[in-house]
Nucleic acid binder design. Structure first.
Lengths: 234, 234
DNA sequence: CGCACCGTTGATTAAACTCAACCTATGTGG
DNA sequence: CCACATAGGTTGAGTTTAATCAACGGTGCG
């Protein structure tokens, strides 16, 4: 089974699923197919770092990537995770600036690289494709604004509850209600902007309140409605 | 002099200055000119609120607007300010969603309204215009990511120092080094995500340290380099 | 085996919030 | 014109939240 993914299978890559490419004409799909560059990237790989010039964007066909910034004192701030169907790196390419985030693969990924030139070619040729990109950027912008409000106004406990629900939404749960994404305690802390110890304490509080169950990094959600109440989402 | 601005002067409106329109062809400028709708909006006016459906975007020709979200307990979180040359409302129009922010005029403004239909018409017809919009969105996205990292990691004091410098940059200072934007203490607090009292205490600390001078809402910056040091910007 | 990384817990400290009181300026209605 | 209400600003005291510091246990790996 694993062997199946040992090499990029371009035929079933992003181009055919619902991604930014869905508005391309057959000729443009052909163009993109001939000019993209698929590769397998192992967990732990740093794709690029804050400050790097990047020469194109990556479409994610498989895997999970962590997008983060490095704040004062070198502390990592996780901005978001990217998974199948997401595009990353476009911000820097579009405004011709060095990357403002770093990207690390946290689950083995299959990525498809499209160079800046090709991206611009497609943007110029197909305005619907541009609108598509614009929609992606706007969606991300709305999420960022929500994030700002949450971090600025909610307590750590509220934010942790919210993030657990958010991760459940975004990555789903297996048949045992365990969130399909394993993060270290430190990573959880770096999403919500707190100390690792605070996350640990709150997780065990949730556990003793019967809201979650913990087995190492696996988090099983027992009572989503309680989490919702704690997180103050309406 | 004031009379001069009593009515929108479309001839010298955004269309001719460096805004999103700079990539339009003469015919498209003509089209936009015939379809836009300029108006004077008084300080205090709420342009639209979170949750409203909005039917177009606003280009700012003059004035200052406050873009904010309402968090838990009704506390206002200021996302950003918009001024001459900025466009607002495009996020909601592009992804066909209700507004995720509210907008209030805090300095008398001249605004130019462009309906969703016209915006889409221009986007479809001119892919360079789309790229222009994409660049605006990406720029804003980068700023939002910085903001997230700051709020999550910096102390209130660091953030206040940073915001003062930021306001100085964005709105400039008059010939007496007074920031060209008057905000209430509460508004300052709602930018950096803290309590009004904390802002007051820190401002008077900065004052007694000889870093700033205060006269009501006017903030005079005496020592920008000290502010930079406090804010931990590198 | 020993190192490195992660997770956990406890104790202490510091930052910032909340609450309350009071002051000032401004504007309003009687 | 005065009395009063309102909004913003300030200060102090007390409390809460969360960060920091320190120690220690478990796990996996070279």
């Amino acid at each position: 089974m694993n062997k199946f993914f040992e090499e990029p299978i371009c035929k079933q890559c992003n181009l055919e699923i619902k991604t930014i490419f869905k508005k391309l004409s057959p000729e443009q799909i052909e163009y993109a197919t001939n000019n993209k560059n698929c590769s397998i990237v192992k967990k732990g790989t740093v794709l690029y770092q804050e400050g790097n010039r990047i020469s194109g964007i990556y479409c994610i066909n498989k895997g999970v990537l962590k997008i983060y910034k490095t704040g004062t004192e070198g502390k990592e701030q996780i901005i978001k995770f990217a998974k199948k169907g997401d595009v990353i790196g476009y911000r820097s390419v579009i405004i011709s600036e060095p990357a403002c985030t770093s990207v690390k693969v946290i689950e083995d990924a299959v990525l498809c690289f499209i160079s800046s030139q090709e991206l611009y070619h497609l943007l110029r040729e197909n305005s619907e494709f541009g609108i598509e990109m614009l929609q992606i950027a706007c969606k991300e912008l709305g999420e960022a604004n929500d994030y700002i409000t949450d971090i600025a106004q909610k307590s750590v406990k509220e934010r942790l509850a919210e993030i657990l629900l958010h991760l459940k939404d975004e990555f789903g749960v297996n048949n045992e209600e365990v969130i399909n994404l394993n993060l270290t305690r430190e990573e959880l802390a770096n999403i919500i902007g707190t100390a690792t110890e605070s996350v640990i304490r709150l997780l065990s509080e949730f556990k003793s309140d019967g809201i979650i169950e913990l087995q190492g990094r696996k988090i099983k959600i027992l009572d989503a409605s309680k989490l919702k109440k704690i997180s103050n989402i309406f």
